[in-house]
Each structure stands twice: as C-alpha cells, then as structure tokens.
C-alpha cells in the first residue's frame, strides 16, 4: 500500500494513486455489469429496484446482490488497508442529506455512478448535464456551509 500512499505536489492531503486505482476498479465494476448483464451500474437505480421503489428489467434478486456487494467490497479494502474509520456526519445532517439525495436521484434519474461514470463515458447529453449540475451544486453547498461555519463531520 506504500505506492498507493504517494502524494501530489501542492496537495498534501490528496491520495492520487489510491484514487486512480479506486476509479479503475469502479470502471471495471461498471464494465462487468454492462458487458456481463447488459445493464448500467447506477447505484441509485439499482437500489430503488432492490427496495421495490421502481420497476426495472433487472431481476430484484440481482439488484439485491449488487447492493450487498458494495459493503462487501468496502470491507475487503478496509481490512487489507487497515485504514482508520473515517468521520461521518451526525444523525440530523445524515437524514437531511439522505432525503435530498433520494429525491434528487429519482427526479434526476441517476447519481455519481449512473450519470457520472456510466453516462459520461458514453457522452450521454443527459448525463453530462446531470453531472455538471450536481457537481456545481455540490461545490456551492460545501462553499456555503463553510462560509456559514457549519461543521457536519465529527
């Protein structure tokens, strides 16, 4: 893991190689879904399917299998890397953020995975617009919270 700890000049907190390796894995995962099952690996859509919130041609059991795989993969990496447990927001911001993410991803037909990875890589107009939009509001939200001195991670 020492190579993955390489840093980026000017950005002492960045983990560029770990980020790139993680990104390649995410791309591979989405490629397995596309070339193996013929479907988009969009987490918000697959989650909605698993919990019976939306219909899809993906069998519900397969949607569940994907959703269960997510923490499984994270568990393997956390065990191998021995990284410290990161800080998460408290219950109130988590509920507010979760609600907004849930509403937004249904209305916007996708999230970082479906639009950001799968859609952008095929140059989908809708995904390019969606990704530019959620990045812009993400930037604005963090900037506004910093300006107001609102800390959420504990």
């Amino acid at each position: 893991m020492s190579l993955l700890g390489t840093s980026l000049p000017g950005f002492p907190d960045a983990a560029p190689l770990a980020g790139l390796a993680g990104g390649v894995l995410i791309g591979l995962a989405a490629a397995v879904m596309l070339l193996g099952a013929g479907r988009i690996a969009g987490v918000s859509g697959i989650a909605a399917r698993a919990f019976g919130i939306s219909a899809s041609s993906l069998p519900r059991a397969a949607a569940w299998a994907f959703v269960i795989g997510l923490p499984l993969g994270a568990l393997i990496v956390m065990n191998l890397s021995g990284a410290a447990t990161p800080d998460f927001a408290g219950p109130v911001p988590l509920v507010i953020a979760g609600l907004i993410v849930g509403i937004g991803t249904r209305l916007g037909s996708g999230c970082t995975s479906g639009h950001g990875v799968c859609g952008m890589s095929r140059l989908s107009q809708r995904s390019l617009v969606a990704t530019a939009t959620f990045m812009a509001t993400g930037f604005a939200t963090v900037a506004a919270m910093n300006l107001l001195g609102i800390e959420v991670l504990s």
């Binding site: 998460f88 927001a89 911001p93 988590l94 507010i96 953020a97 979760g98 609600l99 907004i100 993410v101 849930g102 509403i103 937004g104 991803t105 249904r106 209305l107 916007g108 037909s109 999230c111 970082t112 639009h115 617009v129 969606a130 990704t131 939009t133 959620f134 990045m135 812009a136 509001t137 993400g138 930037f139 604005a140 939200t141 963090v142 919270m145 959420v152 991670l153």
Partner: peptide
C-alpha cells in the same frame, strides 16, 4: 433533480 442530489451530496459527503 441533479441540482438537489448535489446539495445532498455536499451536505454529508455521501
């Protein structure tokens, strides 16, 4: 929808 999603993403970082 995407604008809302970005706001939620920014609030908790998830």
């Amino acid at each position: 929808g995407s604008a809302l999603f970005g706001i939620g993403w920014g609030i908790a970082g998830l």
